[in-house]
Design a protein around this nucleic acid. Sequence first.
RNA 1: GCCGGGAUGGCGGAAUGGCAGACGCUACGGACUUAAAAUCCGUUGGAAAGUAAUUUCCGUGAGGGUUCGAAUCCCUCUCCCGGCACCA
Length: 817
Amino acid sequence: MNKRKYDPASIEEKWRRIWEEKKINYTDITDHSKKYYCLDMFPYPSGSGLHVGHWRGYVLSDVWARYKKLQGYNVLHPMGWDSFGLPAENDAIKKGIHPKISTKNNIENIKRQLKEIGAMYDWTKEINTSDPEYYRWTQWIFLQMFHKGLAYRAEMPINWCPNCKTGLANEEVINGCCERCGTTVTKKRMMQWMLRITQYAERLLSDLDRLDWPEKVKVMQRNWIGKSEGASVLFKVDNGSDIELEVFTTRPDTLFGATYVVLAPEHPLVFKITTPDRLSQVREYVEKAINKSDLERTQLSREKTGVFTGAYSINPVNGKRIPIWVADYVLVHYGSGAIMSVPAHDMRDFEFARKFSLPVIEVIYSEDAKRNKDGSLLDAYEGKGVLLNSGHLTGMDSDEAKAAIVRWLEKSGKGCFKVTYKLRDWVFSRQRYWGEPIPIVYCDNCGTVPVDEKDLPVVLPDVESYRPTGTGKSPLAGIPDFVNTICPKCKGPATRETDTMPQWAGSSWYFLRYPNPNLKTAAFDRDVVDKWLPVDCYIGGVEHAILHLLYARFFTKFLYDIGVIGFDEPFMRLFNQGMVTKFSEKTGKLEKMSKSKGNVVNPDPLVKKYGTDTVRLYELFIGPPEVDSEWNDSGIEGCFRFLKKAWDFVVKEVDKNSQTNDISRKRLHLLIKRVTERIEEFKFNTAISAFMEFLKDLPDDTCYSKEDIEKFVILIAPFAPHFAEELWCEILKNEETIFRAKWPGFDKSLIVEETMTIPVQVDGKLRGTLSVSKNIDAESIFEAALNLEAVTKIIGNKRIVKKIYIPGKIVNFVLEK
RNA sequence: GCCGGGAUGGCGGAAUGGCAGACGCUACGGACUUAAAAUCCGUUGGAAAGUAAUUUCCGUGAGGGUUCGAAUCCCUCUCCCGGCACCA
């Protein structure tokens, strides 16, 4: 008799080595007859390595990839490194280690950890965004955008840390303060490279409907794009000039209630309309507002401020003369940077009007409006209603009035229907070292000139100091060898752009590179990517719900538009795994695992103690994959015990060398059904419970043939691959890897029970159960149910008002009250 | 403030209109053992009654509703988590 016990230490490394040697995880991309692209969001190679929270997503996608492979798909499951970025650069500043070196070391460590997960990554397809052979193509895509006018330069305010003397990315600004030194971040206007993502706003919005993504993520993207429909209205300035102010409103029906106009402090017409007597006050206000930090302007106080310009404008609809103000509650980058103010029907306008004693004219009447005793509005009423004080439109309902006013505006040339988006163009410049150099040259004769494609990549040079220059330029500006070059056009002396791209650049197209990661002649081969993409299933954390996923969609649509790929959405299905949380001593709360919260759990010691397969199982068993779960070390024992039991079960059954009996076959087929269905639904936690239930109360006469025990081992293979492979090859004596085996099907007829247990209720309370044939008719089951002692006792001599039988589900008797 | 998601035993969770608490952990009791580890068996939501098998009542954040029947559907509220936040 075989007495071998389950010993993960002796099998896991062995199989990983053999899989690698035999290229089990290699994906032949020329075979795309039944392809499946299962992609993980690739990691930033951080110095602290992976914790059990990272593991969760990787285990999840690996189970899915292995399941697909066992179903006969040719699965592409690659991995790579999003390796440009700030932590490496900040480390370089602090410790003086070149980002290239620290990145390389970090990748080595994380790769070791990833390999320990036992995932079926095809490492021959590894990519690295900071590799010149990769970022050459990131630069190439930028040039294509430049040629199409989608990449442009503009003077934009950037986040500026006056202490570090450097520009900061949005993600480096925490609550209005510099992430590194805590100084309040201010703004600085600088020339920036921008990408015209707003040109894609409508498609990015409407194509969301085609995607099989979590509704939550789609909602977040929709809100971020922020489409709103309304009207653009022209207000003539009443100073003898021809100046007209364009305002945007979603409520053209309230136009008669406009009692003043407000410009954003940065609005270009502010000083053209301000009257001489008001000039000094306006100048003072504007300067103060512009220099306010985001924190001061949006978060600290919502108290309205503003200043009167001295000028008036004419409301086009009724010719009324209303004052023009400047106030920082109007944002320059939204709509036209100017609004018509309708205090009666907008909360913000109402507050402002009250503070500066401006008139409030009610133009939408509703019973729901909150009023003072004298009938005047207590607060702005923002809902719908019937028009009031609105000339010939009085009495119309607000929806009709919207359309009527827009029609009138268009007819009279005073405005038009208008759609605006909250989405803004993408600031693509970083005044930083560790990123892709923007491949542009400035020439005194030719102006802004793109680097020739044949001269890509523009290689990031080594620098002496990573410290920002203090002028707001990147450290690259301090390297004459890099900066000074010749103009690609006229061959005269020229200088290079020294800004680099943001970290999002490389990850906006990496999924296109995996099938052909070493292609020298192009970013990707159209024939190949058209076969393999879009990605069938993309798995990662919800923290990338907006930016990364939006940018990747934007890049994909652009590449589709220029005809280099044949699809315009990168990820058909998206799955967001829940966070792994743990109580943090620092904050006193349950928190997402992170180094700063001091609540990370390192998987390495757990792997050492229990083996990879047990940790994999526990990562899945901890809870539903899409929901946040709390990590608790003690639960892992259960998964280890389960694997030991499963091992002993297989060994014992193989030893019997017998045939499967009826009851055992039925149990196995039920297990196949449950596991298959639960994997399909991504309910890996209950798929594992199905195995545990199967093993828990094995009937005494359990008996399986070799063929059937193999089915059991295949079922468990996606979850515990080393475990299954060892049983498959060493105990079941198969020659070839289990991952070339076929996922078992189940026989429905075997699972259906001839008899079923039906609960019997009286007045909705359980009083007993009946074991009956599955074909029983209602009358017979009522008869049987009424013979149950517990039922007759409760009924007594009360009358039964209603008898209910839901076939296969329940019997219920309703008694007279 | 607005938009999502959530709240079920000591703990992680299962059940998405039909037997609440599957499965696992913890704890307790027992078997095996010189002993320990490992393993196996049993109990483990609360309350009450009974020598006992067992029986009864209560119970899914709070309150109301729909239904023969609600953890599940609807309304109101509380708390927690996430996103957005002067977007006209």
